[in-house]
Computed example of a mutant assay.
Amino acid sequence: MAQAGVDEVGRGCWYGPVFAAAVILPASAHAPLASAGLTDSKALTARRRAQLVPQITEAAERWSLGQASAAEIDRFGIRQATEWAMIRALQRLGSAPELVLVDGVLPLRAWRGPQRTVVRGDSLHLEIAAASVLAKQCRDALIQRLAQRHPGYGLERHAGYGTAVHRQALLRLGPTPLHRRTFLRKLLGP
């Protein structure tokens, strides 16, 4: 059965898009990826994630990315934007998988095919773990590039999350067009 794991990254950030990845792994890829240490991206170092990316993309039957912009997050809310990022990743797989394994507790309301939510799915299913790693590495790479366009915020260090460094930069410089204004209301006001 072709099942796709889907996961997101960047949901709690103050800056940039929310990313998602969808991955379908053939049965033959499970043992090699498990022995390579594939698990939830948050449990891996950046170096280890970078090493796993080519292994995942070479082993995967299919994989794809999706994202939703900071403007979409501000206009429609983080839950809707996260769903759109996941749906976009799934649609880019080419054909619908027989089952979608969604990390977390919230189902994809707009997905019409079979799906199952899995709490801590990135630790339980290699498809979700692979999606977690790809989404994290691709989003982090984008934020590194954007840090050059928006210097002074420390994006290269915190990837857009709400750190003390990021807070101080926002108070000093104000938000960029890629900041999530709705996430900054308490910090900067309406």
Rank of each mutant, 00 (worst) to 15 (best):
E83P: 01
V165N: 06
G5R: 01
R149M: 07
A21R: 13
Q91A: 13
T45P: 10
Q137S: 11
V133F: 06
G160V: 05
A20I: 08
C138P: 00
H166A: 03
Q137T: 13
L126Y: 08
I87N: 01
A34S: 05
S64F: 12
A131Y: 05
R47A: 14
L90H: 12
S69T: 15
M1T: 08
L38D: 09
V100N: 02
K186W: 10
H30R: 14
L65G: 06
T39R: 15
A4V: 04
Q91F: 02
A81C: 03
A130S: 13
A130V: 07
A43K: 15
R139D: 04
R185G: 02
M1F: 03
R157S: 09
A31G: 07
L184T: 07
Y153G: 14
G113L: 02
G189E: 09
K136L: 03
V119A: 02
G104I: 04
Q144K: 13
P190K: 13
Q3L: 05
A129C: 04
A85D: 05
R185M: 03
G154D: 08
V18K: 14
S123I: 00
R185E: 15
T176K: 07
L33N: 09
L90S: 06
S28C: 12
A43R: 15
V53F: 02
E98Y: 00
Q115L: 01
A59G: 05
V18I: 11
R109M: 09
C13K: 14
P17Y: 11
L126P: 10
R149P: 03
Q51W: 01
Q51M: 05
Q55K: 13
L108C: 02
S95G: 01
R167Q: 15
L187W: 11
T57W: 08
G121P: 05
L170A: 07
R48M: 03
E72K: 10
L146P: 05
I128E: 04
A46K: 11
Y153L: 12
L134S: 09
A164P: 08
P17K: 13
R149W: 05
Q144S: 12
R157F: 06
A130T: 09
E58Q: 15
L171C: 03
A59N: 11
A27H: 13
E83R: 05
A96G: 06
